[in-house]
Amino acid sequence: METSSVSPHMRDTSASINDNRLKILEATMKRNQYRPDALIEVLHKAQELFGFLSPTLLISVARSLHLPPSRVYGVATFYHFFSLAPQGEHTCTICLGTACYVRGANNLMVAAEGAIGVSAGKTTADGTFSLASARCLGACGIAPAVIVDGVVAGNVTPRDLSARLVALLASPSKDESRT
């Protein structure tokens, strides 16, 4: 994987044995009785906990669920939700569903790419921002819709979005503000 500079706020996945997140993941698998068919549920949980699915995580899930590693990797890469690379601290997802498309979602994408400086599906080199597109959020009633850091917003204009993203980029990162 290409990581020119690893940013301090990229979520850590070199999880130690005592990592609480591993215990939560273990509990999820246990609740599913380590059944192989719980793979997708477990991957959802793993990604929620760690931010992305590292090879170490995938191997440990494979062992616990008695699945061949290739099967786990095959599933993890089939679904768009799962990411095998770390995501940025901030995320912006632009809906490119039909209703949003007809109402100019493409212009939002252009604006976001301009503001963040990466194309859809990519994360900035410093790990600050990830830009993504979504198939349809089902928020067609308020098209075009975007999700910025988990919050859905509707009837968005390119100018609003640019301003919002530029402001986020300029604000101190969570880790820095915490210290």
Partner: peptide, 11 residues
């Protein structure tokens, strides 16, 4: 799994 973009009845 209402995947059709532009459909949100089931949601």
């Amino acid at each position: 799994d209402e995947g059709d973009p532009g459909a949100f009845m089931d949601r």
